[in-house]
Design a binder for these strands. Sequence first.
DNA 1: AAATTCACG
DNA 2: ACGTACGTGAATTTA
Length: 887
Amino acid sequence: MAKDKLLLIDGNSIAFRSFFALHNSLSKFVNKNGLHTNAIFGFNKMLDSILEQYQPTAALVAFDAGKTTFRNGKFDNYKGGRSKTPPELSEQMPYLRELLTGYGIKSYELPNYEADDIIGTLAKEAEAQDYAVVVVTGDRDLTQLSSEKTIVAVTKKGVSEVEEYTPAYVEEKLGVTPKQIIDIKGLAGDTSDNYPGVTKVGEKTAIKLLKQFDSLENLYEHLDELKPSKMKEHLIEDRDNAFISKDLATIRRDAPIEISLDDVQYAGINEEYLREFYHQMNFKSFLSKLDQTATQDGVEAVKKEVVFNVLNKDNVEQLQSLKGEIDFYLEMLDKNYHLSDFTGFVIGNADNIWVSDDVELLNNSKIKAILEDPKIKINVFDSKRTYVGLHRLGIKLTAVNFDILLQSYLLDTNDNSNDLGQLAHEHDYDAIDTDDDVYGKGAKRAVPEQTELFNHLARKLAAINFLGKQLDQELVKNEQNNLYWDIELPLAIVLAKMEISGIKVDRNRLNQMQSEFTERLSEIETNIYNEAGEEFNLNSPKQLGVVLFEKLKLPIIKKTKTGYSTAVDVLEKLQGESPIIDNILNYRTLSKIKSTYVDGLLKVIHTTDEKVHTTYVQTLTQTGRLSSIDPNLQNIPVRIEEGRKIRQAFVPAREGWHILSSDYSQIELRVLAHITGDQNLQEAFKNGEDIHATTAVKIFGLKDASEVTPNIRRQAKAVNFGIVYGISDYGLSQNIGISRKDAKKFIETYFKEFPGVKKYIDESVQLAKEQGYVETIAHRRRYLPDINSSSFNLRSFAERTAMNTPIQGSAADIIKIAMIDMENELEKRNLKSRMLLQVHDELIFEVPDEEMTLMKELVPKVMDSAVKLDVPLKVGAAWGNTWYDAK
DNA sequence: AAATTCACG
DNA sequence: ACGTACGTGAATTTA
């Protein structure tokens, strides 16, 4: 057995294979700089399995040097007509070199030569020195190198598995010897490398000929032995091509390489370099693999032990050392912190950590004083959650400093997690586990034994301590510190107060609606079953599809991934085909209202106060909007009267109070006018015009607003929406039911009439391509990793987002500022009125009657003066007995 | 857990 | 030629 083993890898080929093996999940392999990493990931997998399998003593990865090689000199069109390497792959190539550096494997390329030639040359040299050689590639042509000492391992589908070509296996598989592979190529040519061979001769014919004549040269020497045939004519005619093709297919074994076997001895990985690289690539699995091998080798412990004290009522005095800036974390395992049990807490700083699983301790005057001290700055993870949790324990969290959940969200909305462990990992801090790891997922979630719990909590505190400062610096660097300190952090407390206030729900009203809906639904159900001639599950799109399109043979308008679409737009097109359609549409509407809103809301009313307490998710949306969950109070029906009645169940918490609702009018279009600087759009708003009518006049070339019919206005409104969403002719045509051509004309006219808008759209897409992100007026950022994608879909989506996000996001900034201002006003003026809900462009309050006169002036005033734009903000207000009546 | 549908801005 | 409007959450069925 040879003592030395040389591993030679065809770099470009393996990169290419890896890239396409993981092409489906391309969008999942993106690091935080927007770099695609799928080929790197696949390459790494291949390396791991190959290194383990072959245990080489020397290794080299060969790359193609560039587009042109000596082969192009021999044949103009060599590799011509190849589609060019996708940019998502090209961008990964430099990082592959880094990966190899981490593995301690040299890479090499040689101008004018291909990777094959480097491999061929070095393999020859190694064989001469009695090495065993393994060549790894995705390209079968390299099997010509296989010999008694050289195995060619060709990757199978998944990249990390290979098929080993020994000379015997080549013969078995292809019916020729390794040497004859180039003769096949000479006769049959190669479509992918774009050289011709002999006309009408393919692989099968070539093999047959070679079995008889052994080599191309011998074949031509004995050509006269062949009976006259079409094939013989082709062979004679294409003689030159055949020899050129064979030459092109021949791997050089004498390339002028300036690297020797001594240079490629393999000494193992550079762990530190690799670790840093994995962080940069966001390769979690490889990172943990590194950790495992490190521990196994006893080189280094995975994580340092964390030191903490267990707090109890006898040692709380120790906390007196906590001054200035501290860290705190309150553990509530249930997602819904309005109801969750308390699992424990941890308090401390960089020097000392105290943990406990007894939250009653928090009400100890010593601890309470610290948490409520305005002079002690407290770093947390999720200030809103912490505020609400402590509030339930009778403690008022007063001076939050860093909230790493908020900070991290502002830095990058993509890489954000509500799990502290996961989030820490995103920021390269690894001395902590995720909650899923410690507590378990889903049904298995449970509190672990005390030591493990305390360890986890202590690690959480250490993570908060470490990350707060770091993230703060990153915010400053991004000019996002004002966004954090002046908007998001104060807003978290405002939202906490709104959630705690909750909104009262009239249970009786809902119960009454419940019986009405139950009755009406069962009636409609009976009708549908009669019309269908059978009973089925109406809530199942699948079963409904069978009834409509197979049994009743209605025309199929649209299909989904899994079957027939039965969505509203489809059903509406079928109206008139059968009376069953109207009934189904009715059923859908009513059952939606009943299940989601009537039954759904009844389930989440707190029995203690007859209120619902939503949770606003502050760190979720890609644009900066809030979201509302459990229950979602931002999608209570309003457009259809039957659903709108749900709002009658939202009532003030006390007698003699009313609901006040105040909303921005066309805030997104006003923001558009502001950030585009378009003179015409700005004029329209400054003159207080009906913006949809103005747009209608412009795009339909009307004399003035008097010519605008309701239908024309409706179309213009759709165009305005389209602009805000990042318009496409197709989208617009679908929305208002016109031809794509007409839609295109509308858009073109719009851009002519509002040239500032056109200019802005082009510029923001351009900017996104250059810097990788777009920004709102308050410097909220959204990274768009797909903006330079070669996939039309992904790129187009990113482009539309680049237009829409600054608009939707700036509108979100504005209402957030208004909410903070409003809460300040309520406090300053010592008002009893409470802000209860935010619905993106609308704020809802409950107001005692004696404050109504003031509030209905104050709220709009605060809202429209939240920021100063180049156009005025317009705010409307209405009030009534219930949310329904505040219209 | 994914897919479909539909409620909101 | 490609195949799309932007941002969300909840209920339901199905695999």
